[in-house]
């Protein structure tokens, strides 16, 4: 008799509690899921690693349409592909090193958000794993290659940059020459005018005869040099 009204009185508070906890739980699960997804979805620091993909694709070549057996990629090709991968890693290491100091000081000042820092740290961690992986693969392809593959890759990276820069500079030569031919024509005519005006002109340079004293002095310098 007494329990009946009591039960009815309790229904409302209980329902309230259930609804409340239910809402909280749903909210927290959804929130946490989103958060996890977000950090997983943070854009990677680097784009796809093309050289790595090439190397792994070569390792896992699929059989051609007609034949059954998988084409055998010779080890020399794999070595070249691994070396290319190591060279790209060197570029990435250089980028990471350059970014690290900048990133950490910007983070301290609060100029960049937390997610950028997270992305950076993940890139750093992935890079370490990548290097370890390359060393392992190198040792598998040739004895003790793991010790020197990054030295080699480093030189290849530096040499490539140097040659590119030199080529760029040397490529200007034709254009410069054309410009100078045109320019010289004007300089000459100016010079002629100046000659008429005063005795010494500024345009003497192109026509300066090589005087013997300087000829004598320069080879000695050369000797000293090389």
């Amino acid at each position: 008799m007494f329990s009946l009204p009591d039960w009815r009185g309790l229904v409302l508070p209980f329902a309230y509690l259930i609804v409340l906890t239910g809402t909280f739980m749903t909210f927290s699960t959804i929130y946490r899921k989103r958060k996890a997804q977000q950090s997983a979805n943070l854009a990677p620091w680097f784009g796809p690693h093309l050289q790595r993909n090439v190397y792994l694709s070569l390792l896992h070549m699929e059989p051609e349409n007609g034949s059954e057996k998988t084409p055998k990629v010779p080890e020399s090709v794999l070595r070249a592909a691994l070396l290319r991968r190591a060279v790209e890693d060197i570029h990435r290491i250089i980028q990471i090193r350059a970014a690290k100091a900048a990133c950490s000081s910007l983070l301290q000042r609060g100029s960049i958000g937390d997610d950028l820092w997270q992305r950076f740290q993940r890139a750093e961690k992935e890079m370490e794993e990548e290097l370890r992986d390359v060393v392992m693969e190198a040792n598998a392809l040739a004895p003790n290659w793991g010790q020197s593959i990054f030295q080699t890759a480093n030189e290849i990276a530096a040499n490539t940059v140097l040659r590119e820069r030199l080529d760029e500079i040397q490529a200007q030569a034709t254009q410069e020459k054309e410009w100078w031919e045109k320019r010289r024509a004007t300089v000459r005519s100016e010079f002629m005018k100046e000659l008429e005006g005063e005795e010494t002109g500024t345009g003497t340079a192109p026509g300066t005869p090589v005087d013997s004293s300087s000829v004598a002095s320069s080879p000695s310098k050369k000797k000293g040099k090389n």
Binding site: F46, G47, R52, N53, M61, P71, S76, V77, E129
Partner: peptide
């Protein structure tokens, strides 16, 4: 996620059996 440490993007490559050049 473009790159994972355990996965890679397979590229459609083929090798010339004579010259061993990849294309």
């Amino acid at each position: 996620m473009a790159e994972d440490l355990n996965t890679y993007t397979h590229l459609p490559l083929t090798m010339d059996p004579q010259s061993k050049s990849i294309s």
